[in-house]
Design a protein around this nucleic acid. Structure first.
Lengths: 213, 213, 213, 213
DNA sequence: TATGAATGAGTCTTCATTCAT
DNA sequence: TATGAATGAAGACTCATTCAT
């Protein structure tokens, strides 16, 4: 009969090892992609034995799942209180949009390597993982659509197929993020890019009637 | 010594086998992704022997390259004469844009499985392949930017960071195509979606001054 | 320094754990054979930790040995006083034989699973264990031979190679026991089968001169 | 399109390799039992590569199955024409029995190592293999029972539970064979042992009325 | 003494690649 | 040129055993 103290310590140690392995996996996957690395690479990076990996994850695939869950939970946490109060005119809407995007970029930048990992490797892992990621992205699309519908209802956005537009916004975002985080943005002025693209989303690229040149 | 006729027949047969293998690879990759399938799966699908594969391609990776090249060449062929005459007002610009997109969708639909393959698996194959695909997409972004700059110069598009907007357009397109071809578009009315999204690109989602409700 | 009472309690607890592990091993081996189960299966069944197993047995093999010893000792205890007085005519000899077999079946039925385990798995464990089992069976063969020689000396058994006949009797018994305990006896009337087979051993299957039809 | 000749040669070569592997497996299993050897041991003995084993057998278990099938088929072939004419008196019955047993011993001696392998390891492999062996032995028991029933019907065997007696005979045979082939028969005079045991089966060990001492 | 997390040697199995025909 | 049997290096995974607590 083990003492409760002993049991707690064991659990804590085990949890530490798990974190250690996840961090190592993230590093390795970020460096070489998901498929190429061997379990041996991950445990070497983590500094534990081969068998230890299998005490914590059934397979490389399971570790990736755990990694994604940890990441996505963190990502969502930043948007929990978002829908508390909705903007009531176009200017406020634009401010709120800029605010959301900025907050998003902060998280993404903090997890740069993981983001790139999932963006590139995610859809190629297997059908189940693609589905999981797809569901995650759809949650963001739904959020965008919800906001868009609000704006339409308020009258400061024009009626449109908000489902399509929301997905288009997600598409824009994904590509810009991927280019930004992989260092392919023309200049790395992310702030300027954000403004530019929010304006593009709000007003399109056409010169409007009465717009000053 | 083989007769010239014999030689020619041999060559023709060889080319046929190559096409056969490429088609088989496309089918298999489309079904299971790039990494999981074994050479054995491809040759089984093609109905040839194991060794035959290696007479035509150095590796699975090389076959993928060949597949991409064949596809991309076909894709570009549709846009060769695009820049022959540029639209001179906003309405013509919109018509031309719709036209381009429609033509694109025709090719994409014809090669549905390959498109999905490259969209999903491409970035995960390896750095070189990602670079190759990236270059391909950048050619489309460059094209879009060229048109946008023309419109700005003509005065019917507002001045903007055309490089960013062009990439944003590519991002929009990629996501919509991926959803469309994988059957996740809300309704499968691609024509309506095209109009909707071109309008979004042209005018944004905001109601403009003087726009009728 | 531990009190003598404490010491005694520790010893008692240790013995209990040992019994617990042996019982668990018996159950597991009976279910899945000797080779397939892992130590982890045994300790899970016993409800103790992995390490505990090694405090009691050096290896799975050693636990099997202990299991066999415990079983065989119990088996022999039923035959200790057997040779106290020998039968003096054929009828008494037959009665004594039936009596021995019945007593044997009682023990075997009580340890059904272990018996089947050793019958099936024993010879396949390793050379040493086979030797050990073989020696055990030879003790029964020797006993049978001793009785047979007595009967021959008394004149109510015919002279024969008693060593061979004794081993044949053991063979008969092993197969019948295996079939009985695994539920493959035509009807489960073990008592009738005993009589039948003792008669077969005594008289063979041939009709004798003067036997009534 | 491969030439038929080529195909036939390939097939022949493949069959040779298979035989090679089966022989190697038999040798290895006979030496060390079924469970301990690794695939590496078998392929080393056969002088082929690791992968070659898996081209021919899905697993070690499948190889054992193939080995047993090959052996059992050979064993049965010797008894195909056995029931052509049945003995009509006790003396002929005894001659026929001796004849069968002698023929059996010839085959068994020729396959000494395999016989010992199956006798010892067979029941311990897994439930399916045990069932397979059991079915094989039951075929011999059925044969014995058929003969016994014939003798009873003819009146030169006494009425008895022929099913039980047949199984008892199988049990006797198994133990004697195992002792004989493993060199534990007191003297190696197998011919004398056969006579002795057939007599035991025919007449039991009791002295009969009117038998001369 | 009991525990169970950690270990890493050992093994199975796969599969890209070769090569004799 | 096409074939497919053979190959063996590579990698996933297992599990008996250790040892710090």
């Amino acid at each position: 009969m083990p003492s409760p103290l002993r049991k707690q310590n064991d659990l804590k140690r085990k949890a530490q090892t798990r974190v250690c392995l996840l961090d190592a996996a993230a590093k390795i996957f970020a460096r070489s992609g998901y498929h190429p690395p061997r379990i041996a690479d991950i445990v070497a990076e983590a500094g534990v034995g081969q068998g230890t990996f299998y005490r914590h994850f059934a397979s490389k695939r399971a570790a990736l799942d755990a990694l994604f869950d940890r990441f996505f939970e963190k990502l969502l946490r930043g948007f929990a209180q978002l829908s508390d109060h909705l903007p009531e005119d176009q200017a406020a809407y634009r401010e709120a949009s800029l605010d959301v995007v900025r907050r998003l970029t902060d998280v993404l930048q903090a997890e740069r390597e993981l983001v790139l990992l999932f963006l590139r490797q995610g859809p190629a892992v297997d059908a189940a993982f693609e589905e999981k990621m797809s569901a995650g992205l759809d949650r963001f699309a739904d959020l965008a659509r919800f906001y868009l519908d609000h704006a339409i209802a308020q009258g400061f956005a024009r009626p449109c197929r908000s489902d399509l537009v929301a997905q288009a916004l997600v598409g824009m975002a994904l590509r810009m993020v991927e280019r930004w985080l992989s260092g392919r943005l023309a200049d790395q002025q992310i702030e300027a890019a954000i403004t530019e693209l929010v304006d593009f989303a709000f007003f399109g690229f056409c010169r409007q009637e009465g717009e000053k040149s």
